[in-house]
Design a binder for these strands. Structure first.
Lengths: 227, 227
DNA sequence: TGGAGTCGTATTGCATGCAATATTGAAATC
DNA sequence: GATTTCAATATTGCATGCAATACGACTCCA
């Protein structure tokens, strides 16, 4: 189950909990009991678990309340929207530099991921598609050559990942998303930063417009005044 | 000594260590021994300290090596430059929205901070000046109304803070920085997002050009291949 | 002189136990 | 019946102790 069997127990626990949260196996708002997680991980004591929870809290994946324990962070619709606009801004920041700097090897990898993504779509493998999709965006951002940008992008992507995933369950959306990605790849190959920026922006806004509908009644904490 | 006497010991320890690192009282690369910090904080045991160190590591302020302990994160010149370019990108992202959204109250606060900053300059209080300067930039970013953006901006600012501080010790630079800030405020008051963006970008690039000279031989880890 | 091996010490990683706080459920009161 | 009180239980916060790993000094040998 826990394939990440290497590293310290804190590291293993953080990686496993992060995976569970990002993959959506733990619902937003759900309580994370130290003892329960310890047993789940096969007898890990609370000390490394508490350290792992602190790390995840710093990443924004869990929320800690003093003396009251940890819960999976629940984002309001507003907060998800802010995060997505923020991510659009990061990709915009990356677009020009990426078009200027990417190497042939980087382009080849992105094209490969793109083909794989098409394959996942034809095979109707939603999860595989979504993973590949995310990786493509990550690679584009990385191509800009700014490690700080790439790191923050990855972290903030992870935070809102589950809220965006749902959109692709609508088949029309999924189909359009693929088409948008074709144009994104074209803009990249043409090294047209301005065009790439616009393609990416539209892609994400379209995606969220659909995901928001589905997600609002499932995941998003609707109490907007909670914070 | 530790004025932050409230909250859990983990919180207190994290706050105090963060303060020490950001203020520059702990040098980059310096080792942080768990026992030593515990004694410094007046007999705190290692457990909450370890949790605090994990938090700071997630924020990028300290670097943890398994079985080898914690050190204050040392950034290469390249990494600082990437972080500053990233911060410029964040301010660019914020500029348009800030100009569109800021309220009179927000503008009034920024103007007040601006005046205070001038006062600190006239009194040659470098530290107070630098604090006010940072706060102004933070407030501008916050005026954009995106909490994710504001949070990331604050975190990444803190990471590179000490590397930028040095530049203002050059009196010509300090004088010019003030003049640049006057124009930044003008652009903001005119609600001219494009101009504000350019003013901010130039301000930071000018600042780093000077700070880089001073800092390279003091703080920055010159081994560029370390990562 | 230089390098590999070895032992002693210091430090980290983690489990455990206890005190403090929060939560639950039942009894009591209105 | 609804609400408050209070005790029993569960959970978190933190200190301590032990095992494992890393570091430094010393020796030995080429």
């Amino acid at each position: 189950m826990t394939d990440a069997a290497h590293g310290t127990r804190t590291q293993v626990a953080a990686d496993e909990l992060r995976r569970l949260i990002i993959a959506g196996d733990l619902a937003p708002g759900q309580r994370i009991s130290e003892r329960a997680v310890g047993e789940y991980l096969g007898g890990t004591s609370r000390t490394p678990l508490r350290e792992a929870l602190k790390v995840l809290a710093a990443e924004g994946l869990v929320t800690l309340s003093p003396n009251r324990g940890a819960t999976v962070t629940a984002l309001s619709e507003r907060e998800v929207e802010e995060a997505i606009e923020f991510l659009i801004g990061l990709e915009s920041q990356a677009a020009d530099a990426a078009c200027e700097h990417f190497t042939e090897a980087q382009l080849a990898e992105i094209e490969h991921l793109h083909d794989e993504m098409h394959r996942a779509f034809r095979a109707q493998q939603l999860m595989a598609y979504f993973e590949l999709n995310q990786t493509i965006h990550q690679r584009i951002v990385e191509a800009a050559g700014n490690r700080v940008l790439a790191r923050v992008y990855a972290t903030e992507c992870a935070r809102v990942r589950r809220y965006r995933y749902a959109g692709n369950r609508r088949h029309e959306r999924w189909e359009r998303a693929i088409a948008e990605h074709d144009r994104i790849l074209e803009a990249l190959k043409a090294r047209d930063g301005a065009l790439l920026r616009e393609m990416l922006r539209a892609h994400h806004r379209n995606g969220w417009r659909v995901a928001r509908q589905l997600v609002t009644r499932e995941l998003v904490s609707t109490t907007e005044t909670e914070r």
